[in-house]
């Protein structure tokens, strides 16, 4: 099965996500956060999840709500600690959640590598820092590099601006962030969009994520939040 399906509800869209899955969650703070899919995932009940996302939740909604519901075993992210990351902070300090901290660019490139079939790559980021400890290194053109492996998800939950019925996606402003790379890096990519438009309404020149990467689409009323206490 390769063609994307347009579904009626978020609950249908997240059906079948098993306990213990690795779930890639799009968004940078609240921009691009798939709030409605996450709410559906909380209702669906999958637990013991590994979540890969840039942050570890803001406020009490979206990813923070999933954490608060106790469904997440491990977070792989670049920037957990923020002014409003109290849900994660409490779980982490209580030893109830595991953290793998990854530099933001490595997070993006490791996802990209997964989606692009790259076995691993050498990258200068993090050389000589605690985040490169224990990793294989190599000097290339006189510069030290660290070997980094792909991050692949069982599922990706992302938010895009518009989809067509084929599953071609366009995003909006900086809400694009991790969506396009996560869409390529998961076994099943689930997308919430503001609207599904008729075939042909998205110019082929403007498509950001081509349909081949998209499995399930659901249109939801756009709900946006602004991070409180942002710096």
């Amino acid at each position: 099965m390769s063609r994307a399906r347009v579904l009626e509800t978020c609950d249908e869209a997240v059906a079948g996500i098993q306990h213990g899955s690795t779930v890639l969650v799009g968004g940078f703070g609240f921009a691009g956060m798939p709030f409605d899919l996450i709410d559906a995932l909380i209702r669906q009940g999958a637990a013991d999840l590994t979540v890969v996302s840039n942050n570890a939740g803001n406020g009490d909604v979206g990813l923070a709500a999933l954490l608060k519901a106790g469904r997440v075993r491990k977070v792989v992210c670049s920037f957990p600690r923020q002014a409003d990351s109290h849900v994660f902070d409490e779980l982490y300090r209580a030893g109830k959640i595991e953290l793998e901290l990854v530099p933001q660019g490595n997070l993006a490139e490791r996802l990209r590598a997964a989606g692009a079939g790259i076995g691993a790559f050498y990258c200068p980021t993090g050389v000589g820092t605690p985040l490169a400890e224990g990793k294989e290194t190599r000097t290339i053109d006189g510069r030290d590099h660290v070997l980094e492996y792909p991050i692949r998800g069982d599922y990706a939950l992302i938010c895009a601006h518009r989809a067509d019925p084929m599953g071609n996606l366009v995003y909006r402003k900086t809400a694009r962030n991790f969506g396009p790379v996560m869409a390529t890096a998961a076994g099943t990519t689930i997308v919430q969009v503001g609207e599904v438009v008729a075939l042909g309404e998205i110019s082929p020149e403007a498509v950001v994520t081509p349909s081949i990467h998209v499995d399930r689409i659901v249109a939801v009323e756009v709900r946006r939040h602004t991070v409180q206490g942002a710096r």
């Binding site: 670049s78 920037f79 957990p80 600690r81 923020q82 994660f88 902070d89 982490y92 300090r93 953290l99 901290l101 990854v102 530099p103 933001q104 660019g105 490595n106 200068p124 980021t125 993090g126 050389v127 820092t129 985040l131």
Partner: peptide
């Protein structure tokens, strides 16, 4: 609680 974001990538 450590947070690195893009700092290591920018530094190199």
């Amino acid at each position: 609680i450590p947070a690195v974001g893009g700092a290591m990538d920018l530094a190199v």
